[in-house]
């Protein structure tokens, strides 16, 4: 059919755009490296300036790949949540996943001084932070899954997720109140989000988690499409609703939880990218939407990261602020222009 050719063309263009964004992202940074030399290094040659090799291979390329994984994963988990909860306001964090991660991070950073006797490690580094955050998000996810067994109503599950979020946020505020300024600063710094600082090894772990999430999403494409009609229709079409719901929640947990653990709670991408994609592709078919949000999420995150690192300056802006500043006007503009939200 004609539309299928159109989609294919769209995807080719999008992948090209992704490639361009990737190269731009890698070629810009606090140290200015000529574009020609950047290409040289990417293609495996070494340039005379040894530190350039080091910067590109051990700093910029991992950062760019992290941005791609973070953008794709968050966008996909947002799409899953919006369809599962039939709610355009849902994002990857509605189940309390990000609050759980924040709680984990907060307990590690700020709680260690309060309960120094109970916690054996007071040394806070990136890896222990990632572990604490993922433990936090998975504990919340586990509780949500247990509740999901008892509660059949998906809307109730959404509200329960939000309530868990409130509770954890409250605990974090109490911790912040009692902690010292240095620790508070460290926590706030984490909550800004960052796609830098990941080693190749950590990147590999993140990649595995994201791939698992993407695979679970791909096997859920059919149930997701039938959920567009409503839960009762989906069941009448032979969908094992309970199992599909578990798989979708688990996929979201892996994607959003894993990303938050390594990159902090990054706002907006998960909520906005599915909307952008629906507006541009003008479809709700998940066979198109799932790959499309992956690519869009990656592009948007790369652009945001390029801006956040403020080319040719040593300062790095918090990526969390940039995603919202760039993303929100785009969504507003699209909605105003089309005068109609596609969902």
């Amino acid at each position: 059919m004609n539309t299928q050719k159109k989609y294919r063309l769209f995807f080719v263009l999008l992948l090209l755009a992704l490639l361009v964004c990737l190269v731009i992202n890698i070629s810009l940074g606090s140290v200015s490296i000529p574009l020609k030399d950047t290409f040289y290094v990417i293609l495996g040659n070494s340039v005379q300036n040894d530190s350039w090799n080091n910067i590109i291979w051990n700093y910029r390329i991992p950062k760019a790949f992290t941005a791609i994984l973070v953008g794709s994963g968050l966008a996909l988990s947002g799409l899953l949540m919006q369809t599962l909860f039939r709610n355009p306001l849902a994002g990857p964090f509605v189940l309390g996943i990000s609050s759980g991660a924040s709680l984990g991070a907060a307990l590690l950073i700020m709680g260690s001084s309060l309960f120094s006797g109970m916690l054996s490690f007071t040394f806070v580094n990136d890896l222990s932070l990632a572990i604490a955050a993922s433990v936090g998000s998975f504990l919340v996810l586990l509780v949500v899954m247990i509740v999901a067994v008892k509660i059949k109503d998906t809307m109730a599950l959404l509200i329960i997720g939000l309530m868990f979020g409130s509770i954890t946020t409250a605990i974090v505020s109490i911790l912040s109140y009692f902690t010292n300024a240095e620790k508070l600063r460290q926590y706030i710094y984490w909550s800004f989000g960052s796609v830098g600082n990941l080693s190749w090894q950590q990147l590999l772990i993140l990649l595995t988690i994201i791939l698992a999430g993407v695979l679970l999403s791909i096997i859920s494409i059919k149930p997701l499409n039938s959920l567009l009609l409503g839960e009762n229709y989906a069941r009448s079409l032979g969908v094992n609703l309970k199992r599909s719901r578990y798989i979708i929640i688990l996929a979201t947990g892996l994607l959003a939880g894993g990303i938050t653990a390594f990159a902090g709670p990054i706002a907006f991408i998960g909520l906005a990218v599915p909307h952008l994609t629906r507006q541009i592709f003008n479809t709700t078919d998940h066979k198109v939407l799932v790959p499309a949000v992956l690519v869009y999420g990656a592009i948007l995150m790369l652009i945001c990261d390029t801006i956040a690192q403020l080319p040719a300056s040593v300062n790095v802006l918090p990526i969390n602020a940039i995603t919202s500043i760039i993303g929100a006007p785009v969504v507003i503009w699209l909605l105003v222009r089309k005068k109609k939200m596609i969902f």
């Binding site: 567009l228 009609l229 409503g230 229709y233 069941r235 009448s236 032979g238 969908v239 003008n282 969902f343």
Partner: peptide, 20 residues
């Protein structure tokens, strides 16, 4: 659910989630 889906189909009064 799958066996039933090839025997029985439904049209309900509830609105569609996505009209797009």
């Amino acid at each position: 659910a799958l066996d039933l889906a090839s025997l029985l189909s439904i049209v309900l009064t509830e609105p569609l989630v996505s009209k797009n």
